[in-house]
Amino acid sequence: MNHLFEELEKDYRFKEGYHSCINCGTCTAVCPAAEFYRYDPRKIVDIVQTRDDRQIEELLSSDTIWYCGECMSCLTRCPRKNGPGLVIMALRDLSIRTGLFTRSEKGRQMLPLTRTFSRNILEFGYCVYPETFDWNDHKESGPVWKWHMDHLEKSLERLGANYKGDGPGVLRRIPQESLDELKAIFDVTGATERISLVEKYSQQKAEEMGMSLEEYEKKAFEYSSDKHFNE
């Protein structure tokens, strides 16, 4: 893929979010990520504005594009109605399609993210689902959530949910025909292909790093070096 900027221009998020940045830095001033990470959305848009594929490739290979929380606070405040958060979404998409995401620590998180959400959506019909929300990976959810998970069916029954039940209601079982339609949508719209791409590039990177794919996934999920943070 030789013309990275041209690829970005095809993305509808890019069309919506990239107009004429005046480099005022308002986006950076309001950005929750910029306060925490070594991150500056103003600089990212500035780099993209150069249309220089070498610099864009560096961005796609870096941790920088993965720091955004997609809250879109930047979109509200930009005096020119740019959306650096939307530009970030286009950059991330391109980083995944080119395989460059495996070059950065934060980019490698695409493997656990893709596995988690594709499983939740295709097996259960939800983005978040109790069976895959392991308390040991979410101790911030507190002792009350451990209690809830330890008594999941009875606690949900007490609260009027329809957990795994037929018909409408909270946490109902999504009918198989609906799950089949989600799978067909994944196949037709490129999500299935995306899963394969992420798996293929992650496998290659894991081999390069001398790890099994499972070790690679675990490290991506829980390891953070300290190079990302502001002082």
């Binding site: 959400f117 019909g125 978040v128 409408p168 109902r172 009918p175 989600l182």
Partner: peptide, 18 residues
């Protein structure tokens, strides 16, 4: 009962295409 997730969280985690 036939409705599902909208996919919004997966979309904003960049795990599914637009």
């Amino acid at each position: 009962p036939y409705h599902t997730t909208c996919g919004g969280i997966a979309y904003h985690c960049d795990a599914i295409p637009q």
